[in-house]
């Protein structure tokens, strides 16, 4: 059965002019999401994963410039849409959950008002229908006494509850795609797991595509179908979650995985891995591999010319490295 493609991104780049030159935080990003699939974008802070998601939503800051070869949602070419048509899609066929539940809701309006705003804007339903759906979804995301919650204000809810409200809000219009930008980072560890389970469950039930942006590989291992690892504005490795975790092929991915202790495997008292050096500046052009500076395998070959995302490892695994995995064995 061929999977139904929901989102296709190709050649997506973001450029931001700064006083010291042009900043390229997102460079030539390519990936896709199928219906009912969870794609995780992983990387450390500043690697461009959040800007990638904002670029897809066309919610970038004013100064940032977006360019792409292909940006298709279902069969809509989003590159050809004006801001007005784009706003018809946002919150309707594609919605977003943000990192900061504490500040992502407007303090001046009730939960009910903010939940029903989307469907009313997109002409999907009248007030009473929207309210019914809001109550139904609040119960779905595990909020009790949902009818009463509609009358409450954000400041009366805890962070975990607010993030549940945000999730319900993202589902209000029945979108095909949800982008969750570090949805659990700001929450207590105990709540993080609950919210993740909830997201995964709802995503299965509603068969939406989910882009999960995170720096937490533990999270990724549990819920992602496919993983894209980003480093310094580029996707350096992409493949099924199984392949990424069993046969990581990019030195950066390996470095990331080495940083995680595995119970029973990591010897007590032994040192955890770390990646030496810092992320390079993304101002101006950078030929060759972005990770070369920090990579212990790097040679002159790495920095002399651009390194493409090669698929020599099979159809479901691509890696941006001049070496083959065998050459990288320690």
């Amino acid at each position: 059965m061929a999977a139904e493609r929901i989102l296709e991104v190709e050649g997506l780049s973001v450029a931001i002019p700064t006083p010291s030159g042009m900043l390229h935080p997102v460079q030539n990003v390519k990936f896709h999401v199928d219906r009912g699939e969870t794609v995780a974008i992983v990387g450390e802070s500043g690697c461009g994963k959040s800007l990638t998601s904002l670029a897809i939503m066309n919610l970038l800051p004013h100064r940032a410039m977006r360019s792409a070869d292909r940006l298709v949602l279902d069969d809509t070419d989003m590159l050809r849409l004006g801001e007005r048509q784009m706003s018809d899609i946002r919150g309707n066929r594609m919605s977003m959950i943000f990192q900061e539940p504490m500040t992502s809701l407007n303090p001046a309006y009730t939960i009910g008002d903010q939940l029903t705003e989307g469907p009313r804007r997109h002409g999907q339903s009248g007030m009473s229908e929207a309210r019914d759906r809001a109550v139904w979804l609040l119960e779905k995301v595990g909020i009790t006494a949902a009818t009463n919650r509609l009358r409450q204000y954000p400041h009366q809810l805890s962070g975990g509850l607010r993030q549940r409200v945000m999730i319900a809000m993202a589902l209000m219009c029945g979108p095909d795609l949800i982008i969750a930008d570090e949805p659990t980072t700001a929450l207590d560890v105990t709540i993080q797991a609950q919210i993740l389970h909830l997201l995964a469950e709802l995503q299965r039930e509603f068969r939406t595509g989910l882009i999960l942006i995170t720096h937490d590989l533990g999270v990724v291992a549990r819920v992602a179908d496919r993983v894209a690892v980003m480093y310094a504005g580029q996707i350096v490795e992409e493949g099924t979650a199984h392949r990424i975790f069993t046969t990581p092929s990019h030195p950066y991915t390996r470095g990331l995985l080495d940083c995680i202790p595995i119970p029973g495997k990591t010897a007590r008292g032994s040192h955890l891995g770390s990646i030496p050096g810092i992320v390079p500046s993304l101002i101006g052009e950078m030929p060759g591999c972005h990770f070369a500076e920090r990579c212990r395998h790097a040679t002159g070959r790495c920095t002399s010319r651009p390194v493409g995302l090669g698929d020599g490892l099979g159809p479901d695994h691509r890696v941006r490295c001049v070496f083959s995995p065998e050459e990288l064995q320690p």
């Binding site: 939503m57 919610l59 706003s87 946002r90 919605s95 977003m96 943000f98 500040t103 809701l105 705003e117």
Partner: peptide, 17 residues
């Protein structure tokens, strides 16, 4: 520049709203 304005825009609300 508040987060909830970004949320409002992510909902597809009209810029006047």
């Amino acid at each position: 520049s508040a987060d909830y304005i970004r949320t409002a825009r992510a909902k597809g609300l009209r810029s006047v709203t």
